[in-house]
């Protein structure tokens, strides 16, 4: 017993390291891809204002105002189009976005004070962007298509075959559509749209353009390489959509 005690004392730093490392890794596995919780809200509040100040430095005033007006108009038009489904949207601005990680995220300058809710879809004028996973009063955090932990439902063309859209984690410009049956007729240049089944995006929003179709040697499926419709490197103005009727088809938007 005494020897054991001495052994523990001699290696107390390493043992403490092991305990703390296990706690840190638990934190990593719990939050990877889906950061949620009180600390995120606290951080959104503190860093959101700072990120917005940084954006101010880069802002070109006239262009900014014109874009804001266009986004507001876009949101109003989309709300009008979706009146039947009571979906509505709000314009917002991406104040920070990571693209260098595998579990990327972004922050928009709209929060629960603007009626933004967890699960809202985020789109730009070019197509689907991602979905909101956490909100604070004035800011919200979202996960974009370029996040390796997420899967999205997509369809080739308006009436074509469906599959899982994922980001393999390599180039930010390109994604993949998987589990597409080998019999599907898909051509380079076809557009992949949202299906609307997941309750986040309305149907028929562009996700990407088909760049290449490869046949998997091991199974009966095709892998379709896409270029995202949205240029995430230049993403700034977005709309946040909330569609109360879509959850009729609702499934979890993302799988961990």
């Amino acid at each position: 017993m005494r020897n054991l005690w001495q052994l523990l004392l001699r290696n107390h730093v390493f043992l403490l390291f092991l305990v703390l490392q296990v706690l840190a890794l638990t934190w990593v596995t719990r939050s990877h891809g889906h950061p949620r919780g009180a600390w995120i809200q606290w951080s959104l509040r503190w860093t959101g204002a700072w990120n917005e100040q940084l954006m101010e430095v880069a802002r070109i005033r006239d262009l900014d105002e014109a874009n804001a007006l266009l986004v507001a108009e876009n949101a109003a038009l989309r709300a009008l189009m979706n009146r039947g489904s009571t979906a509505h949207g709000r314009g917002g601005e991406v104040v920070h976005m990571t693209l260098a990680r595998s579990a990327n995220w972004f922050m928009v300058n709209r929060g629960w004070a603007d009626s933004v809710r967890v699960g809202d879809g985020v789109v730009s004028s070019r197509g689907a962007v991602g979905r909101i996973v956490e909100t604070a009063e004035q800011y919200a955090m979202g996960l974009p298509l370029v996040n390796t932990d997420l899967e999205w439902s997509g369809r080739v063309g308006n009436n074509g075959v469906m599959g899982r859209v994922v980001w393999p984690g390599h180039a930010v410009r390109s994604g993949q559509m998987q589990d597409v049956p080998r019999s599907a007729a898909i051509a380079v240049g076809d557009t992949v749209f949202t299906t609307g089944y997941q309750g986040v995006f309305p149907p028929d929003l562009p996700i990407g353009i088909v760049q290449r179709v490869t046949q998997n040697p091991s199974d009966e499926f095709l892998t379709v390489e896409l270029t995202w419709a949205v240029d995430f490197n230049a993403l700034r103005y977005v709309e946040l959509l909330h569609g109360p009727n879509w959850p009729a088809f609702s499934q979890p938007e993302a799988t961990e």
Binding site: H12, V13, L16, F17, L20, Q21, A24, L25, T26, W27, V28, R30, S31, H32, P35, W39, I40, W42, S43, W46, T47, A103, W105, M141
Partner: peptide, 29 residues
């Protein structure tokens, strides 16, 4: 033990401020 705690706490700080989700804490340790 001071290096260990300094590294771990630094990681916690970066994780909280930059949404690191524990990655910086693990690396700091």
């Amino acid at each position: 033990v001071t290096y260990l705690l300094a590294g771990g706490l630094m990681g916690v700080g970066v994780d909280l401020l930059n949404f690191g989700g524990g990655l910086f804490t693990a690396a700091g340790l």
